[in-house]
Amino acid sequence: MTALMGVTMGFLAFLLIGGISGASAWIFYPGQSNGSNPGKFLVAAFLGFLAAAASSFIGQYLGFFQSGQMLEWLSAIFASCLAGCVFTALAK
């Protein structure tokens, strides 16, 4: 049960980190917006989540860090911000 709790909490944390990073990149990125399109806003949030989760799993697989370490969280935040900004720059 405790091992499963870490996976669930990691999923929720990456969902929150990636969603906020991707959505904030869409909101605060400078550029001409084509009206309020909730579809692209949700895609930016989803891509932020995928980037955060992927950076965590790839970093653990390559042995850079273990689950729950600070470097894992920093890589997740950086990857989700980068993915959100790249998507927003290409979409706007």
Rank of each mutant, 00 (worst) to 15 (best):
residue 45 A to K: 06
residue 41 F to W: 15
residue 14 F to A: 04
residue 8 T to S: 12
residue 16 L to R: 04
residue 50 L to I: 11
residue 30 P to S: 14
residue 88 T to N: 09
residue 81 C to Y: 08
residue 71 L to V: 09
residue 32 Q to Y: 13
residue 13 A to V: 07
residue 56 S to V: 01
residue 32 Q to P: 03
residue 18 G to Y: 04
residue 48 G to W: 10
residue 14 F to W: 12
residue 76 A to K: 07
residue 40 K to M: 12
residue 84 G to T: 11
residue 86 V to W: 10
residue 68 G to L: 00
residue 74 L to N: 10
residue 84 G to Y: 06
residue 53 A to V: 08
residue 18 G to S: 10
residue 65 F to E: 08
residue 8 T to H: 04
residue 57 F to A: 01
residue 4 L to P: 01
residue 10 G to V: 05
residue 58 I to T: 03
residue 34 N to W: 05
residue 58 I to W: 00
residue 25 A to F: 04
residue 35 G to H: 02
residue 52 A to C: 10
residue 16 L to C: 09
residue 25 A to E: 10
residue 8 T to L: 15
residue 67 S to M: 05
residue 66 Q to P: 02
residue 2 T to K: 15
residue 23 A to V: 15
residue 76 A to N: 01
residue 58 I to K: 00
residue 86 V to E: 02
residue 65 F to M: 00
residue 88 T to Y: 10
residue 61 Y to F: 09
residue 20 I to K: 07
residue 66 Q to W: 01
residue 79 A to S: 14
residue 66 Q to A: 14
residue 38 P to T: 08
residue 87 F to E: 02
residue 3 A to I: 11
residue 16 L to D: 00
residue 45 A to R: 05
residue 75 S to C: 10
residue 34 N to M: 06
residue 52 A to M: 01
residue 71 L to W: 01
residue 5 M to H: 13
residue 78 F to V: 15
residue 80 S to V: 11
residue 46 F to T: 12
residue 82 L to N: 09
residue 38 P to Y: 11
residue 79 A to E: 00
residue 36 S to C: 01
residue 23 A to S: 14
residue 74 L to P: 08
residue 67 S to Q: 07
residue 38 P to F: 13
residue 75 S to W: 02
residue 15 L to N: 01
residue 39 G to S: 09
residue 40 K to F: 02
residue 2 T to L: 15
residue 40 K to D: 01
residue 61 Y to Q: 07
residue 29 Y to I: 11
residue 2 T to V: 14
residue 17 I to Q: 04
residue 18 G to V: 08
residue 39 G to I: 14
residue 31 G to I: 11
residue 33 S to F: 06
residue 70 M to D: 00
residue 74 L to A: 09
residue 46 F to C: 07
residue 64 F to V: 05
residue 46 F to Q: 05
residue 39 G to L: 14
residue 84 G to N: 04
residue 49 F to N: 11
residue 14 F to N: 06
residue 81 C to H: 03
residue 3 A to Y: 08
residue 6 G to W: 12
residue 74 L to E: 07
residue 42 L to R: 14
residue 29 Y to W: 15
residue 51 A to G: 04
residue 6 G to R: 08
residue 33 S to M: 05
residue 32 Q to L: 14
residue 60 Q to H: 03
residue 62 L to V: 06
residue 15 L to S: 07
residue 44 A to E: 06
residue 89 A to Q: 13
residue 52 A to H: 11
